[in-house]
Design a protein around this nucleic acid. Structure first.
Lengths: 100, 100
DNA sequence: TCTACATATCGGTAATTATAGATATATTAG
DNA sequence: CTAATATATCTATAATTACCGATATGTAGA
């Protein structure tokens, strides 16, 4: 981890909604309804559910999640028309190691 | 640690200069000259040295450091006319535990 | 006291981020 | 193919943050 990457991650974690999303994704099955087509949360939660729970516009949440994926905080997996997002624990660990 | 506090810390860590300051303060004796009046770095580094090393205006650095102290990332100790700042490892740990 | 120095705060403008609505793209169902 | 649904991207404006210079405050020493 370098300073530039760490700062990008810090930017993602500088907004209450985004921090909240990171928290929700710790326990997807507790915080979101079960998926229609997928029987598991192995790849996380789809954009729509996060959007509905967060209460901000679809475009806002989509760009939040895109940025969070780009800086490595989240892992994106596409299944059909859905995009699933889960925490990238490896990068989160690298980040916390860096700032510690 | 709660979401609000974590977000405030995230805001402090969303700027490259501030992240850099946190890094410098890991090893004060390596990154800063020795103090004139104090013989040790037990309370960290004074505002002037951080200001000079960062290359931004005194007022900007002062407000950075004030915010970083308010959200708990730094500990401020005054000795005479100098303000010394050091990392608050306890809060940093609480923060990394929270986001992990 | 007066002066010098260290730091904090104030007031302003520039730059960035937040956020929405509209629209584009991708995928599936029929 | 067409329609419906999920997500991404574009464009614009509002809100926030960045940053500086000026000024205020606080402290030590002459």
């Amino acid at each position: 981890m370098n300073i530039k990457t760490a700062t990008e991650i810090g930017k993602c974690l500088s907004n209450q909604t985004r921090v909240q999303i990171m928290e929700w994704l710790k326990k997807p099955e507790k915080n979101f309804p079960p998926h229609e087509s997928l029987k598991h949360f192995n790849d996380g939660v789809c954009v729509t559910y996060i959007h509905e729970k967060a209460g901000l516009s679809q475009s806002t949440i989509s760009s939040y999640l895109t940025n969070m994926e780009k800086c490595g905080l989240l892992i994106l997996t596409r299944h059909g028309k859905w995009s699933y997002l889960k925490r990238n624990e490896k990068v989160i660990k690298e980040y916390t190691d860096f700032i510690t």
